[in-house]
Simulated assay, not measured.
Amino acid sequence: MPSGAAPLHRQIRAAIEAKILSGEWLPGTRIPNETELAATYGCARMTVNKALSELAADGLIERRRKSGSVVRQPVLQSAVLEIHDIRAEVETIGLSYRFEILKRQARQASRADCARLQIEEPVPVLALTCLHCAAERPFCLEDRLISLAAVPNAKNEAFAALAPGAWLIGEVPWSTAEHRISAVSAGPDASLLQRPLGSACLAVERRTWNAEQPVTHVRLIYPGDAHALVARFTPSKAG
C-alpha cells in the first residue's frame, strides 16, 4: 500500500459508498458477496468483511444471512420545525421523486373538517390524498385539507407540476405553523405504503395559518423504519 494511502478496507468502503450515494446502486440492489469483492480487490475476505460492517453500521447497506448484502432504503431526516418540501427530502439523497393525486374532493367543510382546521363555521374546502414515491417506492402518504376561503385558487389547480404542499408554499404566505408528531399503526391505507396492516408508522400533522386565517391541515404518514425526524435547538438566554 503506497505511503499515505487509506487502508484497503477504507478504499473498498469508499468505492461501494460512492456507488450508493451516486444512485448507481439503488435501494434493494444486491452487493457482490465477500468472495467476489475479495477477488476484485485482491485481498482477504476479512478485509472486505470489515468494509461491509462499517457500511452496515452507517445504515447504507443491510447484511442478510444467506441472501447477502443489499443497499438499504435510506432513513431520511426531516427538520421538525420547518415547512419542508417532500420532493427536496427525496432528491437530497439522490433518489428520483414522483407524486400522484389519489383522491380529490371539493366540498363544504364537515364537522370533522372544521375540527381539523380549527374553525367554527363551515367554509368550502379541498380534500386531497397524495402518494409520494422515492425511486418508485412509496415514501409518504399525504392527507391534506385546504381552506378554499384562504386559498381559492386551489379549487381549480391541477397539481400537475407541483405537489399540494410545494404549491401552497409558493402560493400563499403562512405566519404560524403547528406540528404534532406521533407513532401510529398502519391502517386501511397500509397497502398504499406497501406495509402490512398494523405496522409501525410515523405521523406528522401540521396546521398553518396566514395571520388569523387557517390555510391547511395535513397528515403525513411515513413508514416507521424509513424515516426520522430531527430538530436543532439553541439555548434560550435567560435574563
Rank of each mutant, 00 (worst) to 15 (best):
A56E: 14
R72V: 02
A51T: 06
A112P: 00
I93E: 10
V151K: 11
C43A: 10
I31E: 05
L162Y: 15
P32N: 01
V70N: 01
A160Y: 09
R65N: 09
P152Q: 15
S69E: 03
E142T: 04
G94L: 09
P74H: 00
I31H: 06
D85T: 13
A150E: 06
S110A: 10
L76Q: 07
A57R: 15
R64S: 13
E89A: 02
A51D: 08
L162D: 12
E136V: 01
T129K: 14
E120T: 14
K155Y: 01
A44M: 08
P152N: 15
L126R: 05
L117S: 08
Y97H: 12
P124I: 08
L55Y: 09
R87V: 06
A161Y: 09
L126F: 08
T92E: 13
A161D: 14
I93K: 03
L102A: 02
A160S: 12
E89W: 03
S67H: 04
Q73L: 01
E54F: 07
E34Q: 15
A163R: 02
C43E: 03
Q118K: 15
L52C: 08
A163W: 01
Y41T: 02
G59M: 08
D85F: 04
L55A: 04
I119S: 05
D143C: 07
V151Q: 09
S78G: 11
E89H: 11
C43F: 03
L148F: 01
A44K: 14
K66S: 14
A160H: 10
E157Y: 03
L55M: 07
C133V: 02
D113N: 11
K50T: 13
I93Q: 05
T35D: 10
E62P: 00
I119D: 11
I86M: 02
S67L: 10
A161E: 14
V48N: 07
L131S: 04
G68Q: 10
L141F: 08
R111F: 13
A38G: 03
V90R: 04
P138S: 00
P138G: 00
S69P: 00
K155F: 02
C140I: 03
N49Q: 14
A38Y: 12
I101D: 02
I61F: 03
L102S: 06
A79W: 09
L126V: 11
R144K: 13
K155D: 11
R144I: 13
D143S: 14
S53R: 15
A163E: 14
L148N: 09
A109E: 12
I93N: 04
R64A: 12
H132A: 05
R45Y: 02
L102F: 05
